[in-house]
Design a protein around this nucleic acid. Structure first.
Length: 275
DNA sequence: CTTTCGTCCTGACTGC
DNA sequence: TGCAGTCAGGACGAAA
C-alpha cells in the first residue's frame, strides 16, 4: 500500500534509473484500465528525455525535457518495475522503453493505479488530480497552526480528516494510524478539537513518522531496482498498524492494541494512551 | 456547502 | 485438497 514514504522511495529509485535517458516508446497493453490513459500520451512522451523524477502527495512526477510531466499513482498494488518482466507479466499494463535498454513496467494487479499527463509544469499546479491537494507534510507550509486551521470546524473523526488529501497530502491508512499513536490522540476524537499544542504535536508526529519511514525505505533502494520490483517496505515495523491484540509498545495497559472500523477502514490504536 | 457511502479489483488469506 | 467467502485500500462521484 504505497503511501507518501513509499512513493518517495520509488521516486528516488526511478530518478536514478531514468534521469538523462530518452523515452523510446510507451506501450499500452490493455484498454480497460480504470482511468484510461490520456489521448496521445504515447506520442507526447515519445523521444522525450527524463530530466527528473519527483513526487506530490502520492503521485510520482516524471519530468520530461519539454517541460511536460508524466504522472503516476500506484493505487494499492501498483508498481513501477525496472528491468525484467514482473512475474508472468499478466499485470504489466504499460511498458515504457528507454535508451540503454532500460524498461519500466507499470504493473498493477488491482488496477487502482493510474497514469496521467500534464503538458507543462505550469499546468501541473492546476492539474485536476493535483489541484485541491493539501500541503506536503514534509514541506514548509505544514505545521501546527496550518493543520489546526484545516481541521477547524470539521465534525468528522480525526482519523477520517487526516485521510482527506485536502487536509494534508500523502497520508494513507497506515501512516494516519501511526501518527495518531505517536501524537497520543484518539482516532475517534472530533477533528475540530485538535488545536494549539495538540495540533503542533500531531504535525510533528506526522513529520517524524514519515521521515523515519523514508529513511527505512531508502535503505532498501538497492532492492527496489532489482527485476523483482520488490520494495521491501512491507518489512516496516509498525507500532499499531496491523497489531490488533498485541501489547502497546508505549504503555503497560495490558489491553493491547484495539482495532475498530471507521469509514469502512480499519483503525488500530491504544485506547489508554490515545485520547 | 459538508459528510458519508458505494464502487471498482484481485491476490492473499481464513475456515469448513 | 478444494472451494467459497472475506478482507485490504485510494480516488472519485453520487447521495444524504
Amino acid at each position: 500500500m504505497p503511501e507518501l514514504p513509499e512513493v518517495e522511495t520509488v521516486a528516488r529509485g526511478l530518478e536514478r534509473a531514468l534521469k538523462g535517458r530518452r523515452i523510446l516508446s510507451l506501450r499500452l497493453n490493455r484498454a480497460d484500465l480504470r482511468w484510461p490513459l490520456p489521448a496521445g500520451l504515447a506520442d507526447a512522451v515519445q523521444a522525450q528525455r527524463v530530466v527528473a523524477v519527483g513526487r506530490r502527495a502520492k503521485y510520482l512526477l516524471v519530468h520530461l525535457e519539454a517541460g511536460s510531466v508524466l504522472l503516476a499513482h500506484l493505487g494499492m498494488s501498483g508498481r513501477l518495475v525496472i528491468g525484467g518482466a514482473s512475474g508472468d507479466g499478466r499485470h504489466d499494463h504499460v511498458v515504457i522503453t528507454l535508451e540503454d535498454g532500460v524498461v519500466v513496467r507499470f504493473n498493477d494487479a488491482r488496477r487502482f493505479g493510474l497514469l496521467d499527463y500534464a503538458p507543462t509544469v505550469a499546468a501541473l499546479e492546476s492539474h485536476p488530480r493535483l489541484k485541491g491537494l493539501g500541503p506536503e507534510p514534509l514541506g514548509n507550509q505544514f505545521n501546527g497552526p496550518a493543520l489546526a486551521a484545516s481541521l477547524a470546524g470539521k465534525k468528522t473523526p480525526l482519523k477520517a480528516a487526516l485521510l482527506d488529501q485536502r487536509v494534508v497530502a500523502g497520508l494513507g491508512n497506515i501512516y494516519v494510524c501511526e501518527s495518531l499513536y505517536y501524537a497520543n490522540l484518539s482516532p475517534r476524537r472530533l477533528a475540530r478539537t485538535v488545536t494549539g499544542a495538540r495540533a503542533e504535536t500531531l504535525a510533528q508526529a506526522i513529520r517524524d513518522v514519515l521521515q523515519r519511514a523514508i529513511a527505512a525505505g531508502g535503505s532498501s533502494l538497492r532492492d527496489y531496482v532489482q527485476a523483482t520490483g520488490e520494495l521491501g517496505y512491507f518489512q516496516h515495523h509498525w507500532a499499531v498498524y496491523g497489531k490488533e491484540g498485541k501489547p502497546c509498545p508505549g504503555c503497560d495497559c495490558g489491553k493491547g492494541i484495539r482495532r475498530i472500523v471507521q469509514s469502512g477502514r480499519s483503525t488500530f490504536y491504544c485506547a489508554r494512551r490515545q485520547r
